[in-house]
Design a protein around this nucleic acid. Sequence first.
DNA 1: CAGTATCCACCCTGATACTG
DNA 2: CAGTATCAGGGTGGATACTG
Lengths: 125, 125
Amino acid sequence: MIKINILENDLDINNCPVRKVLDRFGDKWSLLVLLILGKKETLRFNEINKEIGQDISQKMLTVTLRTLEADGYLKRTSYPEIPPRVEYTITDLGKSLFPLIDNLEKWAKVNMSAIEKSREKFMKS
Amino acid sequence: MIKINILENDLDINNCPVRKVLDRFGDKWSLLVLLILGKKETLRFNEINKEIGQDISQKMLTVTLRTLEADGYLKRTSYPEIPPRVEYTITDLGKSLFPLIDNLEKWAKVNMSAIEKSREKFMKS
DNA sequence: CAGTATCCACCCTGATACTG
DNA sequence: CAGTATCAGGGTGGATACTG
């Protein structure tokens, strides 16, 4: 149990709200899937797969979608047809993340070159 | 090489600015160390260690500090005394992250209960 | 089409011991 | 004090084969 003082509150790292969010988007694919669904609203499994490219395995796409669904960032709708059809739609909760992501992106674009220069300098020392 | 369309641009996931940021803070300790240094400005190695608690190993604290230093989020100053003294100070770049973290925290506090309810509901189904 | 199931490799992390 | 070196375990992610 980690106890620290952050921003004037005693926080347990396992209950830290920021960590709880980042734990879901620190993984390899969640953010990507969300952004893709943000653009298209609704997509089928294979459509998401193609949008990402062949670099994601079916397994990881399934795992990622299930996690995002569990948290309520997207909705999964299965149509009992043959062949099966499953649609994934972003929710309002999912959409509400986009301003945060935008901010991250803007910050990154402004500061990334400084960070990369810092890394290079650090390597050489 | 992953090619996707996000936000009207062709993005390679490895060059995605958001991922580049999150890759650094998706880890277990970086954010914590930054926030601690944000409060105190300057701290010694063992002071950071105590602030976090005994849950972080010396090794991981070292690794985390080195990474943050490499990116330019903090500055490391070593005083060649015996016993040695090393001070870590947050930089302006490091400080510039705090508004983003604040936003994440606010978002998390607003939405976390909904997310947790969603998770519980998902478990039962 | 939209998955599961299984196995495997790697990397992150921690524990421990040692050092300038 | 502030590390480094080494080893070990677990979990994430990937490859492949199979299925309702």
